[in-house]
C-alpha cells in the first residue's frame, strides 16, 4: 500500500460519502444520474465476487463491503425511497447504459488476464468503471446546473482516478513485474473522461463563478 493508493481509496470513499450525505440529508438526488449509480453497483458486484473466497487484507475487505453497501444503497434511495425518488430527473437521465454494458462484456471476454469466470468479470468491471461516469457527465451537460455536491462528487471521483495513476507509476518503479495493462489502459481512458470536467470545475472555482459546462 502506498500513499497514492491510500489517498485514492479515501478520495473514492469521500465521493461516495458526499453523495450519500447529499441524498440522505436533503432528501434529494437532483442532478445525479441513476444510470451511473447503477453502473457503479454492477462494477462493484462484478469486481468483488472474490470478496469471501480470497482474503487480501482487512482493509481490502472492509472497503469492498463499504463500496458495495454504499453503491447499492444509493441506487435503492433513488429508485425506492418515497421522497428521494420524486427528485430524480428521469427525463434528462436517458443515456441508454446497456450500450456501455454490452461492449464492456464482449471486450472482457476477448481481453482478460485469464479466461476464467472471475477474471472475465474482473476485466468487465474494469472496463465498465472506465465508462460508468458517462451518463452522469451527459446529464450534467443537459441540465447545465451543477449544484455543489454533484460537482464535488464528480471532482472527487476524478481525483481518485488521478491518484490511482500515480499509484501505478509508483508501484511500477518499486515492484518488479508490476504490470497490469488492463487496469492501466482502462484507468487512463477513465481519467481522460474527467479531464474536461476538471478544466471547467477548476476554472469556475478560480473565477469564483457558478460551474457551467458548455452546451
Amino acid at each position: 500500500m502506498n500513499v497514492f493508493r491510500l489517498a485514492g481509496d479515501m478520495t473514492h470513499l469521500l465521493s461516495v460519502v458526499v453523495l450519500l450525505l447529499k441524498i440522505h440529508t436533503i432528501k434529494s438526488c437532483a442532478g445525479i444520474s441513476l444510470k451511473t449509480q447503477e453502473l457503479y453497483a454492477v462494477v462493484f458486484a462484478a469486481r468483488y465476487l472474490d470478496l469471501f473466497v480470497h482474503f487480501v487484507s482487512l482493509y481490502n475487505t472492509v472497503m469492498k463491503l463499504v463500496f458495495l453497501a454504499s453503491s447499492f444503497s444509493i441506487v435503492w434511495y433513488m429508485k425506492r425511497h418515497k421522497i428521494v425518488r420524486r427528485t430524480y430527473d428521469k427525463d434528462h437521465d436517458t443515456f441508454r447504459h446497456y450500450v456501455l454494458v454490452l461492449p464492456c462484456l464482449l471486450l472482457a471476454l476477448l481481453i482478460n488476464e485469464k479466461f476464467t469466470f472471475r477474471e472475465v468479470m474482473w476485466a468487465f468491471s474494469i472496463y465498465l468503471e472506465a465508462v460508468a461516469i458517462f451518463p452522469q457527465l451527459v446529464l450534467l451537460q443537459r441540465t447545465r446546473n451543477i449544484d455543489n455536491l454533484t460537482g464535488q462528487y464528480v471532482f472527487f471521483l476524478g481525483a481518485y482516478r488521478v491518484l490511482y495513476i500515480l499509484n501505478w507509476i509508483y508501484r511500477y518503479f518499486t515492484e518488479p513485474h508490476f504490470v497490469h495493462w488492463i487496469s492501466w489502459v482502462a484507468g487512463i481512458v477513465q481519467t481522460l473522461l474527467y479531464a474536461d470536467f476538471f478544466y471547467y470545475y477548476i476554472m469556475s472555482w478560480k473565477n469564483n463563478v457558478k460551474l457551467e459546462l458548455p452546451a
Binding site: R5, D9, H12, R47, D50, H54, V56, S57, N60, M63, K64, F67, E113, K114, W122, Y164, N167, S183
Partner: peptide
C-alpha cells in the same frame, strides 16, 4: 507455481 495473480487493488 507462480503466486496466483492477486487483484489487491480496490
Amino acid at each position: 507455481p507462480a503466486e496466483e495473480k492477486k487483484h489487491d487493488e480496490l
